[in-house]
Simulated assay, not measured.
Amino acid sequence: MYQNAGGTARGFTLTDSLPAKLTVLPNSYSAAKGIRWAAGTALTVGAAATPTGTDLTNAAADDQGTLTTTGGTYGQGTLTLKLSGTGLQQNSSGTVCVRTTVN
């Protein structure tokens, strides 16, 4: 979850590292779309519901999301959401989700 209580954050990028004991499920929302972005929806950590939102691809440069894995099948991954075009607007919030399995 993210929230901006200040002014517009130009060039905003959210990055989250996924621990090595998790396996990223890169096609968990649909084919090649492993990120769910729910702008305007702020869920708390551990919430049981999956927010309604936009499914983003895993690949860099074709939309705002990138999902990578490093270190092989059971390696650490990185989730990135880039809002460099619009910036993160004042008083906005949202949730970014990725599905994993625990090894």
Rank of each mutant, 00 (worst) to 15 (best):
A39M: 05
L79I: 10
S28Y: 14
P19Y: 06
L56F: 06
R36L: 15
L81M: 00
A31R: 12
T101L: 14
T68L: 11
A61R: 14
P51Q: 08
A39W: 01
K33P: 09
Y29F: 15
T68W: 10
G94F: 15
P51N: 03
K21W: 15
A38P: 07
V96T: 10
N103G: 03
I35P: 04
Q89W: 02
T66N: 07
T78E: 08
L83K: 05
T95I: 12
A48C: 11
T86A: 03
G87V: 03
G40R: 08
T54N: 03
R36M: 13
L56T: 00
G87R: 05
T66G: 10
T44I: 08
T50V: 15
G40P: 09
G40D: 04
Y29T: 13
Q90V: 14
A60C: 03
T41P: 10
T86H: 02
T57G: 12
T80I: 09
C97S: 15
N27Q: 03
A39N: 01
A59M: 05
A61V: 15
T86N: 03
G94R: 02
G71I: 02
P26S: 01
G40I: 03
L25E: 02
D62K: 13
T78D: 02
S92A: 06
T68K: 07
P51A: 10
N91M: 02
S84Q: 01
T44Q: 11
Q90P: 15
S84C: 03
T52H: 02
A31H: 13
T86F: 02
A48M: 05
N103A: 05
G71T: 01
I35E: 05
G40C: 07
K33N: 14
R36C: 09
G75R: 00
T44C: 06
Q90G: 10
S92H: 06
Q64M: 01
L88M: 14
G77V: 05
A47P: 06
C97V: 14
A48N: 10
W37A: 09
S93Q: 15
G53T: 06
T100D: 09
L81V: 06
